[in-house]
Nucleic acid binder design. Structure first.
Lengths: 204, 204
DNA sequence: CAATCGACTTTTCAATCGACAAGGTTCGGG
DNA sequence: CCCGAACCTTGTCGATTGAAAAGTCGATTG
């Protein structure tokens, strides 16, 4: 001990990698794929850029790891929705929507990932749709609001994007909303107000 | 004539500048501010990067010119809304919403500009909010759906972002929607279907 | 006709990008 | 004890970035 070097005693395996993924999620959500530099991500993670290329063969691979992380947020949603199974249809629909809004508020990075590569047609966009968005879309079609609120088959895409946009936009552009309206959508009160507003919109 | 040089005989003043702004709108909407390079914009406009710095002192200034252009789309909306003045309140609300959705479909770049700098807190975001978004927000508060649909004052920010997100997201991530659902939201049928869906949502 | 100006192109610059190579440090197992 | 593997740092590569300087050329003016 007592070495002059303040070096840490070796962090557990994968600890730095974990920090890198977290920093990547943050940076990609904030700036988009191309504008977020690997050096910026490394700095947020408290390491150097060289370590990124050690843990991930390319920036693209790092982005995919970050996307995996982002879409993992839905696992917590499934548990919460299960507790609503016993409620009556109308109140259950409202509960589902409220939980979805709360999730978007807690993880605005989901919306930003989706929008960032949403109008591209490259491999990254195809990968994101096929591996992450599609399963969620199917899940919503089967267990979501569609059946309860009585939405016909052809309107499902419209409902999907309308709900996602209505629920998430205000949190994805929180500084914008704060400056424009004076309301900070990140505050708990505002989150609940938005959840209630969207629930009233979809299930009056 | 018949010079070997294919040089054009001098285009009218500001013609190239106009092409540059149009190309900038396209590139900024597609990739975001930082990821859109001035050379890419120049190529879309059919000129060189040097001409950009001749017409605009900086990339930031070019972006502001592009933003001015993007928010100019609302002028055409005002005319269309005026023709709805005589309708009864409920049908007028539905008409306003439908026109708004059609506008978002025609100009998805609006939504992308808004989201791209929506979660920053820098000078660009402040400029966009103060010069362009705020007037639109106030306009909607006075003449928009708020009064007709009976939305209380405190819910106006929620309504604003919910409507914007619900109406515009599907068009802003059109390739995403196409791959995910098979529906191309850029087609006229899909646009009308989305307009009808959103109108039914807000004014049942 | 000569001078000049505005519009545009070409060249160049330092800074930064993603990727990679080479070396250093630390730890567990033989 | 030591040795290989895992983890991490440093240095460097060509390519690309925004910006600016310098050069080109047609139209205008005096």
């Amino acid at each position: 001990m007592a070495k002059s070097s303040a070096r840490k005693t070796r962090v557990p395996r994968g600890e730095a990698r974990e920090r890198i993924v977290r920093a990547a999620v943050e940076a990609f959500a904030e700036k988009g794929f191309e504008a977020a530099s690997t050096r910026d991500i490394a700095q947020r993670a408290g390491t150097d850029q060289g370590l990124l290329t050690y843990h991930f063969p390319s920036k693209d691979a790092l982005w995919r790891a970050a996307a995996d992380r982002v879409f993992g947020i839905f696992e917590s949603l499934d548990d919460r929705l299960a507790s609503l199974e016993h409620a009556d249809p109308k109140e259950r629909s409202r509960g589902v929507i409220r939980e979805f809004v709360r999730l978007m508020a807690k993880h605005p990075e989901f919306f930003r990932f989706m929008v960032d590569c949403g109008n591209r047609t490259d491999a990254r966009q195809r990968w994101l749709v096929d591996t992450h968005i599609k399963p969620r879309f199917e899940y919503m079609k089967e267990h979501g609001v569609a059946r309860v609120a009585g939405i016909e088959e052809a309107a499902v895409p419209h409902a999907f994007y309308a709900l996602a946009g209505a629920a998430a936009l205000i949190f994805a552009v929180a500084p914008n909303c704060r400056r424009l309206t004076g309301l900070d959508p990140r505050k708990p009160d505002a989150i609940e107000a938005h959840a209630e507003f969207i629930a009233n919109l979809v299930v009056p």
